[in-house]
């Protein structure tokens, strides 16, 4: 099943290249607040695209459009089924780490036992072994993020929409988690749309970086990141790209 949201009139279904996420001239406003304006964006299957922009530039709206949680006011959104990892981890406080990780499966109708079994297979690889029964409150920020990412992965959808996955973490944990995510995605390749306000994070993780303007969000530039992995933040090329992105965003990022 593909989620296709079109506005304002239903057109015949456009199937783009298999597995790709396509936004064409997408606009979305909330009352008088224009969140996105004429945004055109394409994420090929298997590609990791980071969307960077100042806070309030409609980045989260972009992801919700791709996930089918909102409809565009104008333009076209075509996307395969996508799983959302919301800004705050979205873990349910009454569920154990194991049950939170398996939430997507239970939402799809699986039994508790089946969801737990499926989630548990990944716990060791996610560095969560021994914390199966811990509630979110007892987990560190990095662990919560890993549980949330596992939940997103277990939704079993070809596209992952990650909304500032590490925004709430302290600087040190964030660096560790960025490395961890790069490894995890190398192991389980997916089409990824990563929203962040951290230019460096975008350059480290993505194949392409899309720069959005301040509200209403428009695409300012798209930077390909043709660098071998693993990348380190000290690499000359990484630093150069980061500076270029920052320069392009100009006054847009309040960094």
């Amino acid at each position: 099943m593909r989620i296709e949201t079109e506005a304002p009139v239903e057109e015949p279904r456009h199937i783009s290249e298999a597995g790709a996420v396509v936004l064409e001239d997408v606009a979305r406003a909330f009352g008088p607040v224009r969140a996105l304006e004429r945004v055109t964006l394409r994420v090929a299957a298997g590609e990791i695209v980071a969307v960077v922009g100042p806070s309030g530039c409609g980045k989260s709206t972009l992801l919700e459009l791709v996930c089918g949680l909102q409809r565009p006011d104008a333009g076209r959104v075509v996307a395969p089924p996508a799983a959302l990892m919301p800004q705050r981890d979205g873990l349910l406080p009454w569920l154990s780490a194991l049950d939170n990780a398996g939430l997507a499966l239970r939402a799809a109708g699986a039994s508790r036992a089946a969801a737990r079994a499926a989630a548990h297979q990944h716990f060791a690889a996610f560095g969560l072994e021994g914390f199966e029964r811990a509630r979110p409150r007892a987990l560190s920020g990095g662990m919560r993020q890993r549980v949330a990412f596992l939940r997103t992965l277990l939704a079993g959808r070809p596209v992952l929409c990650l909304d500032e996955p590490f925004g709430a973490l302290d600087a040190l944990t964030r660096v560790q988690m960025q490395q961890w995510l790069a490894t995890a995605l190398a192991r389980e390749p997916r089409t990824v749309l990563l929203v962040t306000h951290d230019v460096e994070e975008a350059v480290l993780l993505a194949d392409r970086v899309v720069l959005l303007s301040a509200r209403p969000g428009r695409v300012v530039a798209t930077l390909p990141v043709d660098l071998p992995r693993p990348r380190a933040r000290g690499d000359h090329a990484v630093v150069a790209l980061r500076e270029r992105a920052l320069a392009l965003l100009g006054g847009e990022v309040d960094a």
């Binding site: 089918g68 959302l84 349910l92 939402a107 109708g109």
Partner: peptide, 25 residues
């Protein structure tokens, strides 16, 4: 509301949402 959104993105139906999210909360 964020958890609601999450469950909606997971295509959880009315009863699933009631059972997994609304009732415990």
């Amino acid at each position: 509301p964020d958890a609601r959104k999450l469950l909606r993105s997971l295509d959880a139906g009315r009863w699933r949402t009631l059972w997994l999210l609304e009732a415990p909360s």
